[in-house]
Amino acid sequence: MAMAVARRESRRLMPLVNPSVSIRSNLISPNQEQVGLGVRSISTQIVRNRMKSVKNIQKITKAMKMVAASKLRAIQVRAENSRGLWQPFTALLGDTPSVAVKKNVIVTVSSDKGLCGGINSTSVKISRALHKVNAGPDAESKYVILGEKGKAQLIRDSKKDIVLTLTELQKNFLNYTQISVIADDILKNVEFDALRIVFNKFQSVVSFLPTTATVLSPEIVERESEAGGKIGDLDSYEIEGGETKSEVLQNLTEFQFSCVMFNAVLENACSEQGARMSAMDSSSRNAGDMLDKLTLAYNRTRQASITTELSEIISGAAALEG
């Protein structure tokens, strides 16, 4: 963001060398003394204004960074605590991103707010790629989007494939109850054979790993375990509770989806804060650099005009004397 500001800034500063700017500076501050054409000293008013605005931008980005840092600390602990939740499912049902099914649903987890680096475009890119990978003559892929930013990006080219969008997740405290309600919503409204959840896994403040977790529907789980694929040993498990095996499997996959979603949403929220923190850090640093350059330019012009005035006075006095 600061880069854009800097670019705009330089474009604005460029015409300072033109005399026409003196007119503009008069527009900004009409009370200022009229500066005629051909005056050698340039107006410092614009530079001063710009310095003030850059300073304000720096203050804002610094504050945003602080906010992101404190939010990150809170959410990081929760994301790490939720990491145990999906592991039993992966141990039991295996990790099956390559399973080929008819109805693919890609659940893209993104953030509601911007100014957080590339995490949203990464998850959108990965979702589009997954859409392509799973494309086939008799296979179809649909999107379910969590978060405003992913929606804004995907709606441009794949509007017809979006079946459900959910936003403002983080308005309320992210807890398991909220996520299971969302998971329930998705399960009720979307027909699927495989849900592919795309999110950014938090690794450190500066690195996020785009990840896809796969949740299969109970029918596909049964089909795969009978076919002896990756989840072939599911048949060796005894099943306790429930009337039938398929009923238990149904409960199991629904629970799996809510657990995986819970972790995914937390990891993505954590990555978002981390990304925002580093983005805001670099933009406040950029603002600082820009401020230094502006201050230098300002002081130099001021000094130059003082020198010019002095030499004018001295030379005038010398002319009178001579």
């Binding site: 990491r83 999906w86 592991q87 992966t90 141990a91 295996g94 990790d95 099956t96 991103p97 390559s98 890119k125 990965i126 790629a129 997954l130 392509k132 990978v133 795309v198 896994k201 790993l209 785009p210 990840t211 896809t212 977790a213 796969t214 990756k230 995986v260």
Partner: peptide
């Protein structure tokens, strides 16, 4: 991770790294 998945991915989208899958964190 899942090798067939990585292969499929590389065939269709050669310029993006395949995403990680949960088993890689297990």
């Amino acid at each position: 991770g899942d090798e067939t998945f990585v292969e499929q991915w590389k065939k269709v989208i050669p310029n993006i790294d395949p995403p990680k899958t949960p088993s890689q964190y297990m």
